[in-house]
Write a protein that binds this DNA or RNA. Structure first.
Length: 1044
RNA sequence: GGGCCCGUGGCUCAGGCGGUAGAGCGCACGGCUGAUAACCGUGAGGUCCUGGGUUCGAAUCCCAGCGGGCCCA
C-alpha cells in the first residue's frame, strides 16, 4: 500500500481525538507495556495530585514532564511502572464538603449530620473529582495506569500506612506531648508547617508598660503585635549580652534596650539613668499588667529571664513571653520551669481562666485588652503594623499558637540519618537537593502528625483508659485479633467506625482509640509502599521498590520530598526514591502566581482549544528550563504552533510527491539509489539531533531537547533540505537521484517522529500510521512501540561544518544580489568566493554544486584573493597637507592615475614611493597614502564569516535568455494556480510576443515546457481557457493556457 | 533575620567548563509565489542589575549590594 497524501493543513484537534481513540480502542498503552515487561525495570512513583477540583496548568506541566520522560525510557527498552496516584484525605476536601452541606463548625458536623455521613460525603466528593481529573490527564495524552491507581483512602493503602506508624512506635519515634503548635481556630485543628500560607496582615503594634515590683513609676517596656497573648504572659526575655538602660521620660522610668531608645523617644527629652547588661537583669520581678482583669495571674510570679533569640530589629529588646502561645516562648519557658498558661480553647475562645475576657474570640479581644491597658495608664503607644503572618492554607483564617497535646513523629532524632541518606539521592538541578532540601531538613522540627478532624486515616493508636499504656495497631488482622468490643464493618477503617473498636490492655483495662486522624502528608509520604500494599503483600514491592525517579514542583521540598524521606527512614532506614527533578511553577505573563482572585488563571483546556495538546506539551517543555518558574505566554505558544505548521508543511510536501510517484521505501535498498551530499548531510543532522535529544532527556534538560528539535525542523529540514531537493522532486521517472531524495527525506521524517514521540505523542502517531504502517503492515502498531534509535555512525561532523559554511556563503550571495538589486531568479555568470582560510575554500569546493544551484550562478570560483579588485591610492591629507601644501592636488592626481597595486608593492619593497612633481621629487611613506578598494563595474560583494563573495552581475544575452525564461515560467505557474490545476496536470501554452522576445527564449522552450508541464508550447494565437497579459521588463506578452 | 532561585535587546528566553553577546516574537525595509490561511532575506535595537575582586581577558568565576520570586523563622 502506498503512502497517503497528507491533509493540507495541520488539524491538531482531529488528530489528537483520533489518536487517543486509537490508543483506547486498541489498548496501545497496555500492549506497549506488555511488550517490554521482560526488559530491565525502571520504577517511577507518581506524586498524587489532590482531588479537590480540576487540574490547572501546573498540574498539567507536572504530568507532561513525567509522561515525556517515561515514554522516552520506555522506548529505550525499559519496563516502566507508572501507576497514577490520588491524594484524597484532609482538610481541603472537608472544607469543600462543609461548604456544600452548609456546615460551619465541628459541632455542626458531629451533631447535625454525623461523622459517618460527613466522611461518606467526603469520599464521594473525592471520587467525583478523581474522575474529572483522570479525564483531564488522559486528554493531555498522559500514559499512566489510570484504571488501577493508588488512592489514599483505599483500605489496603491505609493499612500499609498503619504499619509505618507501628514501625515508628517500635523505634520509639512516636510521642504524645504538650507543645505549642500552629493552630487553626476555625478548623479547630493543628496545622503542619506545610499547611500554612504566609501573607501580609495588618495588626496592632503596641508598647506596654509592665510595672516593676517594689518601685514607683518604673516599668519594663514591652512590644507586641498580638495583644491577645498578654493574658498568658509569664515572663519577659532579654538578651544577656545587650546593653539595657533605665530611661526617664516625662516623669516615668522605662527599662529597655539602649539601642532602641531613639527609635521610641527621639522627639522627647529623655535621660538615661542607668545602663546594665541584660544578664544583670535576670530574675527582676514585675507585675502582670492585667492581673486585676485576670485573677488567675495573681498566682504566678513574673520575672525577667534570658534568651539568645532576642533581637534589636524592632520593639524594645524586652520580649513578652507567653509559653502557651509561642514555640520559642514554650522552649524557654520549659528551660526556666515556667507554667504553661494557656487560657484559650480550641476554637480560639478565652476560657474561664482568662477572667474578664472569658468567651471572647482572641482576635476580637485585642481591642478590649488595649483599652484596659490604656485606662490603667499601662499603654505607652499604639500603632498598626503590616507584616507577614501565617494563615490556614485552606480557610485563610489567621493561625494562632496554642499549647495542646498532640502526637509527634520525632524527626529530630532521625534528622542526621536523613541528611546522610540525602547523599544517595541525585537531584536535578543539583542545588534543589544540595542546598534547598538540605536546608529544610536541617531546620526540621518534630512533625505534628495528629489532626482533630474526620476525613483522614485514623491514627491507629489505642490508649488504655486505666494505665494509659498505648498500643499501635499495624494491620487490620492485628486489629481484628485484638478487638474485644465492637466489630469492624467489613474492612472499613475510617472514622467513626474504627472509633467504636476497643482493645484489651495487659493491665486488664479498656483501650480506646485516640480520636485524631493523621496529617495528610503522612498519607502521601507512605505512597512508595502503600501503593504496593506492603507489607501485607510483597511481590510487587520486591519488584519495584525503591523508585528510580520522581518529579514534583519546588513546593514539595517541604511537602512530598520531605514526607516521603521521613516515612521512608521510619519504615526502612532508606530513601524511597533515587533521582528527583524539582520543577518550577507556572506563573502568569507578569510572573505572578496564577490565582482565582487575581483572575489570571490560564486553564490547560484554553490552550488545548486554541492550539492543541501537542503544542501545549511542546511549549511547556520548551519555554524555559524545567526547574525555573514558567511565565506562561500566549505569544510563545503561537510560536510553537508555527513550528508545527512548518513540520506539517514538510510532511505535506513529502507525501504529496511520494504518493504521486507511488514511492514505496521498502522496495529499495541504499545501493540502488543515488545520494547526494545534502542527503548525507541531513541524515547526519537528524542523528546529531537525536544524540542531543537523548542526552538532554536523559539529563532531564527537556528544554535542550525541544530547542534542538525546533531548530532542526525550521532551519535544517524546512528552510534548507527541502529547498535543496525541490528540483529533484520534479524529475519524472524512476530516477535514482529523485528516489535518493525521497528515500532520505522519508527516513529523516521517520527518525524525527521517533525522537518527538515522547514529547508530542499524537502528531507523531498520526504521521507514523501513514509513513510507516502505510507501507509496511508488519511494523509495530504504534510509534511508541518503536525502539529509540540514534545512528551515531551516520554523523559526519565535517560535512555538517561544511554545510554551515556553505549556507553562510549562499546567504552572502543573496545579500550581494540584493544590494545590486539583481533578482535571484536571474542567473549570474560567475561568483567568486574569497577567503584566506583554506578550510573554508575546501568546504566550498566539496559542496560546489549546491552553491551553483542555490546561488543561481553559471560558474563558481574559489580564491584567496579577488583579482579584479581595483586598488586606488589616495593621499592622506592629515600628513601630506602640512608637508606639501599647494602640491597636494598634483600628488593626488598622480596617485589617482597610477595602479594602486603597484604603489602598494613599491611601498612594501622599499618603504617609500617616489612621486615626481615638476622638478620636485616627493617621497611618500606608508602613512601618507590611504588605499581604497574599488569593485569593478557589475560586481556585487558581500561578506560572510571568514571571507567575501563577489557576484558578477553583468547581463549577457545568454543570461537574459534564461532570466526571461524563468520570468515566463513564473507567470505561467501563477496562471496555473489561478486555474486551480492539480500539481501534475498538463497544459498547452500559447505565447504572443515580439520577435525579439521570441528569439530570446527560443532555446529554452523545452526547459519552460518541462517546468510548467506543457505538452505543447507554441508562439501562436489560440482560443484557450485562460489568457492573461503580462509585462516583462519592456515587453508586453500575452500568455494563453489551455487545459488538457 | 535565614536558605534557595532568578535578573542578558521592547517582549519571551538560550548561552553560563572565562576568549568578538545569540534565537524567536515585535518593529522597519526588501524579496519570493505549486509546501502558499505559507515562506525567505536584510536592518535597527544590548552599561549581559550595580559596584568591587581574580585574570592578559569576566555575561560567565569570587565578594558585596540592589531588585523580583519561592520557602522558612
Amino acid at each position: 500500500m502506498p503512502l497517503r497524501e497528507a491533509e493540507k493543513s495541520y488539524n491538531s484537534h482531529r488528530i489528537e481525538e483520533k489518536v487517543q481513540k486509537f490508543w483506547e480502542d486498541h489498548k496501545i498503552y497496555q500492549k506497549t507495556n506488555k511488550m517490554r515487561e521482560d526488559k530491565p525495570k525502571y520504577s517511577f512513583l507518581d506524586g498524587p495530585p489532590y482531588c479537590s477540583g480540576r487540574i490547572h496548568l501546573g498540574t498539567a506541566w507536572n504530568k507532561i514532564l513525567k509522561d515525556t520522560y517515561l515514554r522516552y525510557k520506555s522506548m529505550n527498552g525499559f519496563s516502566i511502572r507508572r501507576q497514577a496516584g490520588w491524594d484524597t484525605h484532609g482538610l481541603p476536601i472537608e472544607h469543600k464538603v462543609e461548604g456544600i452541606l452548609g456546615l460551619k463548625s465541628k459541632k455542626e458536623i458531629e451533631n447535625t449530620i454525623g461523622i459517618d455521613n460527613f466522611v461518606k460525603k467526603c469520599k464521594e466528593f473525592a471520587l467525583e473529582n478523581k474522575k474529572i481529573m483522570t479525564q483531564q490527564f488522559k486528554s493531555l495524552g498522559v500514559w499512566m495506569d489510570w484504571d488501577n491507581p493508588y488512592v489514599t483512602f483505599d483500605t489496603k493503602y491505609m493499612e500499609s500506612c498503619w504499619w509505618t506508624l507501628k514501625r515508628a512506635h517500635e523505634k520509639d519515634l512516636l510521642v504524645k506531648d504538650l507543645r505549642v503548635i500552629t493552630w487553626c481556630p476555625r478548623c479547630e485543628t493543628a496545622l503542619a508547617m506545610a499547611e500554612i500560607d504566609y501573607e501580609n496582615k495588618e495588626d496592632p503594634s503596641i508598647y506596654v508598660k509592665f510595672p516593676l515590683m517594689d518601685t514607683e513609676n518604673e516599668y519594663i517596656l514591652v512590644w507586641t503585635t498580638t495583644p491577645w497573648t498578654l493574658p498568658a504572659n509569664m515572663a519577659v526575655t532579654v538578651h544577656p549580652d545587650f546593653e539595657y538602660v533605665y530611661v526617664a521620660v516625662k516623669g516615668e522610668v522605662y527599662l529597655m534596650a539602649e539601642a532602641l531608645v531613639d527609635s521610641l523617644f527621639a522627639e522627647d527629652d529623655y535621660e538615661i539613668i542607668r545602663t546594665l547588661k541584660g544578664s544583670q537583669l535576670e530574675g527582676l520581678m514585675y507585675q502582670h499588667p492585667l492581673k486585676d482583669e485576670i485573677p488567675e495571674q495573681k498566682g504566678f510570679e513574673h520575672k525577667i529571664i534570658l534568651g539568645e533569640h532576642v533581637t534589636l530589629t524592632d520593639g524594645t529588646g524586652c520580649v513578652h513571653t507567653a509559653p502557651g502561645h509561642g514555640p520559642e516562648d514554650f522552649e524557654i519557658g520549659k528551660k526556666y520551669g515556667l507554667d504553661i498558661f494557656c487560657p484559650v480553647d480550641e476554637a480560639g475562645m478565652f476560657k474561664s481562666e482568662a477572667g474578664k475576657y472569658e468567651g471572647e474570640f482572641v482576635k476580637e479581644a485585642d481591642n478590649d485588652i488595649i483599652n484596659d491597658l490604656n485606662s490603667k495608664n499601662l499603654l505607652l503607644k499604639r500603632e498598626t503594623i503590616t507584616h507577614r503572618y501565617g494563615f490556614c492554607w485552606r480557610c485563610k483564617t489567621p493561625i494562632i499558637y496554642l499549647a495542646t497535646e498532640q502526637w509527634f513523629l520525632k524527626i529530630t532524632e532521625i534528622k542526621d540519618k536523613m541528611l546522610y541518606e540525602l547523599e544517595n539521592i541525585s537531584w536535578v538541578p543539583y542545588w534543589s537537593g544540595d542546598n534547598r532540601f538540605r536546608n529544610w531538613i536541617e531546620n526540621a522540627r518534630d512533625w505534628t502528625i495528629s489532626r482533630q478532624r474526620y476525613w483522614g486515616i485514623p491514627i491507629p493508636i489505642w490508649i488504655c483508659e486505666d494505665c494509659k499504656k498505648i498500643d499501635v495497631v499495624g494491620s487490620i488482622d492485628e486489629l481484628k485479633q485484638k478487638t474485644v468490643k465492637g466489630t469492624l464493618k467489613g474492612d472499613f477503617i475510617h472514622r467513626p467506625h474504627v472509633d467504636e473498636i476497643f482493645l484489651k490492655c495487659s493491665c486488664g483495662g479498656n483501650m480506646k482509640r485516640t480520636p485524631d486522624v493523621l496529617d495528610v502528608w503522612i498519607d502521601s509520604g507512605v505512597a512508595g509502599w502503600a501503593s504496593l500494599h506492603y507489607p501485607q503483600e510483597t511481590e510487587l514491592f520486591e519488584k519495584w521498590y525503591p523508585y528510580e525517579f520522581i518529579t514534583e514542583g519546588h513546593d514539595q521540598t517541604r511537602g512530598w520530598f520531605y514526607s516521603q524521606l521521613g516515612c521512608g527512614m521510619v519504615s526502612f532506614d532508606k530513601s524511597p526514591y533515587k533521582k528527583v527533578l524539582m520543577h518550577g511553577f507556572t506563573l502568569d505573563e507578569d510572573g505572578r502566581k496564577m490565582s482565582k482572585s487575581l483572575g489570571n488563571v490560564v486553564e490547560p483546556e484554553e490552550v488545548i482549544d486554541e492550539h492543541g495538546v501537542d503544542i501545549l506539551r511542546f511549549y511547556l517543555l520548551w519555554g524555559n528550563k524545567p526547574w525555573d518558574d514558567l511565565k506562561f505566554n500566549w505569544e510563545e505558544v503561537k510560536n510553537v504552533s508555527k513550528m508545527f505548521n512548518i513540520l506539517w508543511n514538510v510532511y505535506v510536501f513529502s507525501t504529496t510527491y511520494m504518493s504521486l510517484d507511488n514511492f514505496d521505501p521498502t522496495r529499495y535498498n541504499e545501493n540502488q539509489l543515488k545520494f547526494r551530499k545534502e542527503d548525507r548531510w541531513i541524515t547526519s543532522r537528524i542523528n546529531s539531533v537525536g544524540k542531543i535529544v537523548s542526552k538532554s532527556l536523559e539529563d532531564l534538560h527537556f528544554h535542550k531537547a525541544t530547542r534542538s528539535i525546533n531548530k532542526f525542523i525550521i532551519e535544517d529540514l524546512s528552510r534548507w533540505y527541502v529547498r535543496l531537493i525541490r528540483g529533484r522532486t520534479w524529475i519524472e521517472k524512476e530516477d535514482p537521484d529523485k528516489l535518493g531524495a525521497y528515500y532520505t527525506l522519508y527516513n529523516v521524517l521517520k527518525s524525527l517522529i521517533t525522537l518527538m514521540a515522547p514529547i508530542t505523542p499524537h502528531i507523531t502517531e498520526d504521521m507514523y500510521k501513514n509513513l510507516v504502517l502505510g507501507v509496511n503492515k508488519e511494523a509495530p502498531e504504534s510509534v511508541h512501540m518503536l525502539e529509540w534509535n540514534v545512528q551515531e555512525d551516520l554523523i559526519h561532523e565535517d560535512l555538517e561544518q561544511d554545510m554551515d559554511v556553505l549556507r553562510d556563503i549562499i546567504e552572502a550571495c543573496a545579500r550581494a544580489r540584493d544590494l545590486a538589486r539583481y533578482k535571484l531568479r536571474w542567473p549570474v555568470s560567475e561568483i567568486v568566493v574569497v577567503s584566506e582560510d583554506h578550510n573554508i575554500l575546501n568546504s566550498v569546493e566539496s559542496l560546489k554544486k549546491i552553491i551553483i544551484e542555490q546561488a543561481n550562478t553559471k560558474n563558481l570560483v574559489t580564491s584567496t584573493e579577488f583579482q579584479d579588485l581595483r586598488i586606488n591610492a589616495l593621499p592622506n591629507m592629515k600628513t601630506l597637507g602640512p608637508k606639501l601644501r599647494g602640491n597636494v592636488p598634483k600628488v593626488a592626481k598622480i596617485l589617482e592615475s597610477t595602479d594602486g597595486d603597484k604603489i602598494r608593492e613599491e611601498l612594501k619593497l622599499n618603504g617609500i614611493y617616489k612621486v615626481q612633481i615638476d622638478d620636485l621629487t616627493v617621497e611618500l611613506t606608508e602613512e601618507d597614502i590611504v588605499f581604497e578598494t574599488e569593485l569593478p563595474e557589475n560586481v556585487a560583494n558581500a561578506d560572510f564569516n571568514g571571507g567575501s563573495v563577489y557576484v558578477n552581475t553583468r547581463i549577457t544575452d545568454e543570461i537574459l535568455s534564461e532570466a526571461m525564461s524563468r520570468e515566463l515560467i513564473r507567470r505561467i505557474q501563477d496562471m496555473r494556480k489561478d486555474l486551480d490545476l492539480d500539481v501534475e496536470a498538463n497544459i498547452h501554452v500559447y505565447i504572443q510576443c515580439s520577435d525579439h522576445f521570441k528569439d530570446l527564449i527560443h532555446d529554452f522552450k523545452n526547459f519552460i515546457s518541462h517546468e510548467v508541464r506543457a505538452k505543447t508550447f507554441d508562439f501562436a494565437e489560440e482560443k484557450a481557457d485562460y489568457t492573461k497579459k503580462w509585462k516583462l521588463e519592456d515587453e508586453e506578452i500575452l500568455i494563453s493556457i489551455k487545459k488538457k
